[in-house]
Structures are given as C-alpha cells and as structure tokens.
C-alpha cells in the first residue's frame, strides 16, 4: 500500500514537474505569476480530448500538436497584450492573469459545456506487476513522456541561442537590451514555451483525469506549490518539486483522509515560503 503510493507519487510527480517548469519559467524570467497557467493545461487537455473523439488520435500523439497551438497562443498573448503591463506592480500583473483565467474558463464552458470529459484508452487497464506493485502502462507512458519533455526543455535552455537569450534577459534585463536582444520578442517566446509545456501537460493528464472548465483553477494551485518548492528558474528544482508534491499527496493520503490532500499541498507551500523561500534545492537566483 505504502510502496504502491510511493510509485504512484513518483509517476505523477513527473507531470507535476512539467507543470511547474512552465509556470516557474514565466515567473523567473518576467516576474509574472501566471494564474492562467492552469487554464493553459486545461486547454491542452480539451484539445487532446477533441482530437481523440474527432479523429481517434491517441493523446500521446497529440502532444506536439498541442504544443504548437499553445505556443502560438502564448506568443500572441504576450506580444500583444501582456507586454503592455509586464513592468507593472504585483497586483496589476496578478489581477490581469486572473482575468485571463476566468475568460478562458468561460470560453471553454461555451465550447465544451460544463460536463466532465474523459478519455478511455483501449490499453488503460493494462499494467506491469512487480511483486505487490502495479505500474499501469498509461501512467508509465505519461511519466516517460514528462521526463523526455523536461530533458528537452533543459537542453533548449542550455544549448540553443534562444534559450541562452532567455536566461540572459532573466538575469539582467538592461544588459540583455544593451547587447541587442529583442526583449519584447524574447518575452513572447518565453510565454509561448511556457504555454507549450502546459499544452503538453494537458495531453498527459487527459487519459487519467477528467476535464471540466474549472480544472484550471485547481491545477494552478499545484503549480504554485511546485514552483515554490523547486525554486525559480531551475529545471532540476522543478523536477524535484514535482516529485515532492506528488509524493506528499499520495503518501499523505495513506495516513490521512483524502480530503486532507489539498490541505497538505498548501501547508507545504506556506512552510517552504516562510522557511526556505529559495526553494528546496535552489540558490537565491532572482532578486
């Protein structure tokens, strides 16, 4: 029972990592807490659902499609709207992204109705049994896909020119401008990449969670926790944060009633904020 929940926690923790990386990227680079991040994941899940029901496309195969669509959406939002307020105070940008979140929730409500939608895959009950532990194939696939995405993102930030430019802009805004980086464009790309990761995360959760227009709100709460746990701007930190949240939630419910699951996450958030604001692994990176 305990072992099984540890396995479940680690498997789902990788998805949490994907969610946290996109969220903390925007926060770290532009100093924006994007409350709509959960809604982007939700859009991803809806897209996968739609591709599956309309064309029979497996959710794992809709990952790249989701990423392209969400990248475009994120890029445009940042380029034409968010760049206009990005230098504002906390409560300007935070209120703004809240507005975006409920706008998206309402649009999804109009398109997909308030019903719960879920995908039932033909191989959803298949699994590998090791001793007393069962590893469902779907969850294993999700885990591996999330790890691959995390690895690709890590390489993108380290090895590509755009990735380096994003890092440079995050570390020194004025300096980046001086050396000729188009910061407006870099901001738009950053937001696009974050949204693309959210889109991928949406595809990953679609076979195991049902989606409704209010899913975005609860997912963004998780993103807060993961980002704070991992520390800003650190891919490895987000991976660790995701795993920790996954474990805290699944293992916690072995000892406590499941209604405490949400409580635990937020409790961890507050404690880490107060006692280790630089994250579990991270150094003090920004500010």
């Amino acid at each position: 029972m305990l072992l099984q929940s540890i396995v479940n926690g680690i498997l789902f923790g990788a998805v949490y990592a994907t969610i946290g990386i996109g969220f903390s990227l925007v926060w770290g680079v532009m100093n924006i807490i994007n409350v709509a991040h959960g809604s982007f994941i939700m859009i991803g899940a809806y897209l996968s659902y739609t591709f599956y029901t309309a064309f029979g496309l497996d959710p794992f195969l809709s990952i790249p499609l989701n990423m392209v669509i969400l990248f475009a959406m994120g890029y445009l939002i940042q380029k034409f709207v968010l760049n206009r307020v990005v230098r504002g105070s906390v409560f300007i940008t935070l209120t703004f992204t809240f507005g975006l979140q409920i706008l998206i929730a309402n649009i999804c409500l109009l398109i997909w109705s308030a019903d719960y939608h879920s995908i039932k895959l033909s191989y959803s009950s298949a699994g590998i049994t090791i001793g007393s532990i069962v590893i469902p194939l779907v969850r294993l696939g999700i885990f591996l896909a999330a790890l691959v995405l995390t690895g690709l993102f890590y390489l993108f930030m380290r090895r590509t020119k755009i990735g380096v430019a994003i890092n440079a802009t995050a570390l020194n805004f004025e300096g980046a401008k001086t050396v000729g980086i188009d910061v407006g464009n870099i901001y738009a790309i950053t937001f696009g990449v974050s949204a693309a990761l959210a889109g991928a995360a949406g595809a990953l959760i679609s076979p195991i969670m049902s989606v409704n227009p209010f899913l975005g709100g609860s997912l963004v709460g998780k993103a807060f926790v993961i980002a704070i746990l991992g520390g800003l701007g650190s891919t490895i930190g987000a991976l660790a944060g995701g795993m920790v949240l996954g474990l805290v939630e699944t293992v916690g419910t072995v000892f406590l009633p499941s209604s405490f699951q949400e409580l635990l996450g937020f409790l961890v958030l507050v404690l880490v904020l107060v006692f280790r604001p630089q994250g579990l692994l991270g150094k003090r990176f920004y500010e």
Binding site: T95, F96, G99, L100, I102, L103, A105
Partner: peptide
C-alpha cells in the same frame, strides 16, 4: 464570468 474576465483585462 467571461465578461468579468474581459473587464479585468
């Protein structure tokens, strides 16, 4: 909700 979101933005 959507109208509220739009007004906020």
């Amino acid at each position: 909700l959507g109208m509220l979101g739009l007004i906020i933005i």
